[in-house]
Design a protein around this nucleic acid. Structure first.
Length: 224
DNA sequence: ACATTAAATTCGA
DNA sequence: TCGAATTTAATGT
């Protein structure tokens, strides 16, 4: 159980709920901490919570049998994920691992289902979110094949700044080049080269331990 | 892999 | 509590 204040702070969707729904939501949420490199859950595992990033950074993806890692997307503060598995009441189809110390909000399944069945505002949010994620995954289809490393990195960064999936973000993000590499599936060295190229082209600005996005639109369509 | 630079932490007054 | 010194972390090549 978390306070109404805390709910407002960590869940952008809560502003679409009425008083009663907010009471329900906060009663069904607890917070939990994860340390860097810890698995939040693994593919095939049951994890009966809908989850929100309170702070930190995580990576959603799969590791194949050979140990090869495929990253679907990064998860930053403010994003909520896992609604697919919770709705269908089935095991997770991907891994989520914390890239640095991370705090999560966990909403239990019955609360999620109650909101789904009773709250118009919550459903509005869900539809928008699912639609946005679908768009993101369609974008991933052309990934590996057609795009060079710089474009892949540009797009995984751009994905982090999707205002629907990651509400309340400023154009500045605290993230190391190593973490960007992990999200894009490339080495830190390569990430460094790509980032400098993107800075050259005026799409972002590099800082110590962070980046500031200057042109999200061109980043998103980089390499087209 | 190594050299450089920025930031965080410790320590002495 | 301030700032210099040391250690740790991030970056550039």
């Amino acid at each position: 159980m978390i306070s109404a204040d805390q709910l407002k702070r960590i869940a952008a969707w809560s502003c679409e709920l009425n008083e009663r729904e907010i009471e329900f939501a906060r009663a069904g949420i607890v917070e939990r901490s994860y340390s860097a490199d810890e698995f939040i859950f693994m593919r095939g595992e049951r994890f009966d919570f809908w989850t929100g990033m309170v702070s930190g950074l995580a990576r959603m993806g799969i590791v194949s049998r050979g140990g090869k890692e495929t990253s679907f997307t990064g998860l930053t503060t403010g994003s909520w994920f896992g609604e697919g598995s919770v709705l269908k009441n089935e095991p997770r189809r991907y891994d989520v691992v914390a890239l640095r110390d991370t705090r999560l909000a966990l909403m239990d399944r019955s609360t999620f289902i109650w909101l789904f069945e009773n709250s118009v505002g919550f459903n509005r949010f869900l539809v928008r979110q699912l639609n946005e994620r679908l768009g993101q995954f369609i974008g991933l289809l052309e990934y590996g094949r057609t795009l060079d490393v710089t474009a892949r990195l540009a797009r995984s960064i751009a994905a982090l700044f999707n205002p629907i999936l990651y509400p309340g973000l400023t154009p500045h993000l605290q993230i190391t080049q190593e973490e960007i590499g992990a999200l894009s599936g490339i080495s830190r060295q390569n990430a460094n080269r790509c980032l400098n190229q993107l800075q050259q082209e005026g799409l972002l600005r590099l800082e110590y331990g962070g980046v500031t996005i200057l042109d999200l639109d061109r980043l998103r369509h980089y390499g087209e």
